[in-house]
Structure formats: C-alpha cells, structure tokens
C-alpha cells in the first residue's frame, strides 16, 4: 500500500524528517507514537502534499504510484486521506456542500458515477449517526464553531464518506471524551478492510486497546527509531521515550 524510503523533508528550510523508512501493507493498521515535535504531523502533511513542505530526498509510493510528484488533490483522488490534528474552519460553506463536492470530485476521478442527492444524503446521515453527530452538523459551516471533539468526529465522518485507501489519522483520539473515543474506535474498526490501511498517530496506548495495530512505530528526531507490535505501545506507556536511543 504505502512505501516510504529514506524520506527527508523540511519546512521553512528547517529539516524535520531525516531519513524516514516505513512500509504499510494493504489492510494493515500501523500506529505511530513519538515525542512532541518529532515530526509525526509533518509526515502526514508531506504525504498529503501540503504546500510549503519540501521533500529534499527519498521517495514515497502509494499503491505503486510516486506520491511526491502528484498534486495535493491528485493524492486525495488516489485514495489518501488525512484526518487533521487541527481541523480548519470554512465559515459559510456547509458541511453538506463541502462533503458533496469532495465526494463528487473523488468519484469523478475514480470514474464512478456521481451520487444523486438522495443517495448522498442517505449516506451522509448514516455517517453522522455512526460518529454520533447530530444531523444539524451537516447544515453548519465546515467545522465552524465545532468543539474540539466534534471536529475530530467530523473528520471521521468525512473519511467514511470518501472511502479512502490510506487513512492517516493524526491524533484523532486526542481531546475525545471516553464515549467519543469508543465511537471513533468503532468507526475505524468498521472501516477496516483488506484493501484499506491505517496510520494512527497517537500519544495514548489506550486507543490501541480498541483498535489492534499490526505494527507500532516510534518516530523521533525525524526517523522511525523503533518498531514492534502492540506490546511496544504498552512498554512506551510505562517507560516513556527516554530509554530509546536517538531520542532528540
């Protein structure tokens, strides 16, 4: 699914990713943990193609295609989805409109027929229900005045409607109450499938009790410094990051 080799990237001339390797197979769930400022969000943005993030060396392939030469929206069309750590607001544009436009754009590029409004509405309502957001949220401006937890659930709702191949979820579990955490975990589990992969960026091993990861990685100083199975997350929770060599 995703293959990253020796990735180096910088923002504002500051090197942040410094030789990152990562391979995620189809259907797998990988968790990425690591200290604040180690480059986890940067990795997501570099893969998604955020303007201003420059790749200085290395490669990244999604489904066999070179990601790094594609435009931001082309990566989305290919099936990459990034659930933001800090979702932005678009006042005046309703969630519904935004979702419909996104779904239309993505379907168009997959050569799938456009959804008619009725089926779209139906799907949107179901997605709302799945993430436990009231349907009134469909009519509100994108993330406009949403609480932190509501924004995170809104990200998940978008992900459900767009049905991506690679889901990168940047701290979607941060700031959720206990029930919401369960809702989000259920939502992600329901979406798991042999042809869809997940990268879960998280600070809390707790999430991994709900979603069993295939691999757990520690990102530190712009590189993956340790990988293991679920037990690594438990160990990190107990011991922190300091014992790992290479921790910045």
């Amino acid at each position: 699914m995703l293959k990253i080799d020796n990735l180096h990237a910088s923002v504002e001339n500051k090197a942040i990713l410094k030789g990152l390797d990562l391979a995620v197979g189809a259907g797998e769930v990988h968790a990425i943990m690591g200290p604040n400022g180690s480059g986890k969000s940067t990795l997501g943005h570099v893969l998604a193609g955020r303007p201003g993030y420059t790749v200085t060396a290395g490669s990244a392939q999604l489904l066999g295609q070179d990601l790094l030469t594609l435009d931001t929206e082309e990566r989305a069309h290919l099936g990459l989805f990034l659930a933001y750590q800090y979702p932005v607001e678009i006042p005046g544009v309703s969630n519904m409109e935004f979702l419909k436009a996104s779904v239309d754009a993505v379907r168009e590029h997959r050569n799938e027929p456009a959804l008619d409004s009725v089926s779209f509405m139906k799907q949107a309502r179901e997605a709302c229900k799945a993430v436990n957001l009231d349907q009134a949220f469909l009519k509100r401006g994108v993330n406009e005045g949403f609480s932190g937890g509501e924004k995170k659930r809104n990200e998940l709702m978008q992900m459900m409607l767009l049905a991506p191949k690679l889901c990168i979820m940047d701290e979607t579990d941060s700031g959720l109450d206990i029930d919401a955490l369960q809702v989000v975990a259920d939502g992600i589990n329901a979406m798991r499938s042999p042809d869809r992969s997940f990268i879960l960026v998280t600070h809390y091993q707790r999430l991994l009790n709900f979603i069993k990861p295939d691999r757990v990685h520690v990102l530190s100083g712009g590189r993956i410094v340790k990988s293991g199975d679920h037990s690594l997350a438990l160990e990190l929770e107990e011991r922190g990051y300091a014992w790992l060599e290479d921790v910045a």
Partner: peptide, 27 residues
Amino acid sequence: VSDDQLYLCQQRGLDAEKAVSMIVNGF
C-alpha cells in the same frame, strides 16, 4: 481565503479553483 482552507479542500479532492469558488459562493 486562507491557505489552510484551500489545503483542506484539496486534501479532500477539490481543485483549488473549485475550492475558492465554493468558499466565495458560501460567502
């Protein structure tokens, strides 16, 4: 119209022009 808003729209598959026109129409 902020760069971050456009980035969000593009990440969701919309091209920049469509994104701007959607934001402007909303406005």
